[in-house]
């Protein structure tokens, strides 16, 4: 009996130790970002190197501001990500509503078509899309990222599933009897019901767009239109790298996301796992 208890305790201790090590490994790069971002380049390059935070963050960040329009880039990312998120939530819930609750010829085939488009790697259309954007005169214009970003097959699939299961047909029927138009039904009845789905899908979309790199890199060539990802990557272009400066920029670009994540961590984690489990 006693040895059994002892065995369980050892197992527990082992699990806790392993998880603590994993967590530390997970957090270490953040710590390192901060250590490097607060030290001078000289301190970083000495042997043995610094392992504790220094006092050079101010100067490093000033150097960041001298090489990239940091705040402009953060603002650009915010504009792009929020407008796409809002647009996607609107368009996808509208389409999801139609697929879930309306009967029209071709509904199944049109829906399967949307699912099929999810299989196509975005890189296949990268080059022609670039020329379309050029033709539209949208190079170095945030619209180049926003407008194609509004097309989101996964979002339609997600909203269709949610609306089909969460909205009873009776509500729609009785609203019709009250004389509601279909759009009014969407606006006054569907939207309030699907708000939880908006939160989860919104987080998934926002995160994906915020972190997107290849497409903004291709179409946002002018420095003033860079998103934060493109701007950060351009810090690495120099021949002689000032690691203190580069990591100070990376640090301040990452901190807002971490704060938002910690504030809404339950919603975040639920969104990501639900997104995975549903599809």
């Amino acid at each position: 009996m006693k040895s059994e208890k002892k065995k369980i305790n050892t197992a527990k201790a082992l699990i806790y130790t392993a998880l603590t090590l994993v967590s530390l490994a997970s957090l270490f790069p953040f710590y390192w970002m901060f250590v490097m971002g607060t030290n001078t380049n000289q301190a970083i390059n000495q042997t043995p190197p610094v392992v504790v935070p220094g006092g050079n963050m101010g100067e490093n960040f000033q150097n960041v501001l001298n090489s990239i329009p940091f705040f402009q880039a953060m603002l650009n990312s915010l504009i792009v990500s929020s407008s796409i998120t809002i647009g996607v939530l609107f368009l996808c819930s509208l389409a999801g509503f139609a697929f879930a609750k309306f009967i029209f010829p071709g509904r199944t085939i049109l829906f399967i078509f949307i699912l099929a488009t999810m299989m196509i790697p975005p890189q296949l259309s990268l080059i022609p899309q670039y020329f379309i954007i050029t033709e539209l005169g949208w190079l170095s214009d945030l619209r180049a990222v926003i407008v194609p970003g509004l097309m989101n097959a996964f979002g339609i699939f997600w909203m269709r599933q949610y609306i089909a299961s969460a909205v009873p047909d009776d509500i729609i029927e009785s609203a019709r009897i009250d004389g509601c138009s279909n759009f009014r039904i969407y606006w006054n009845i569907i939207v309030p019901i699907v708000l939880p789905a908006f939160a989860t899908l919104g987080i998934i979309v926002f995160m994906a767009i915020w972190g997107d790199y290849l497409w903004p890199l291709v179409v946002l060539q002018d420095q003033s239109t860079h998103t934060i990802q493109v701007a950060l990557a351009s810090l690495m272009d120099g021949r002689v790298l000032d690691y203190g400066m580069v990591l100070a920029g990376t640090f301040w670009a990452t901190v807002p996301l971490i704060i938002i994540f910690l504030l809404f961590n339950r919603l975040f984690i639920r969104s990501i796992t639900e997104g995975a489990v549903k599809s």
Binding site: S26, F30, M36, Q229, L232, A253, T254, I258
Partner: peptide, 30 residues
């Protein structure tokens, strides 16, 4: 607590991850 710590890297953008690891795996002896 563990879950938060382990999930935090996912919140970081790929570009930021690539930059931090470029510094960790820097060519320099330091």
């Amino acid at each position: 607590v563990f879950r938060l710590a382990i999930f935090l890297p996912y919140v970081t953008s790929i570009v930021a991850v690539a930059i931090v690891f470029s510094v960790i795996f820097s060519n320099q002896e330091s």
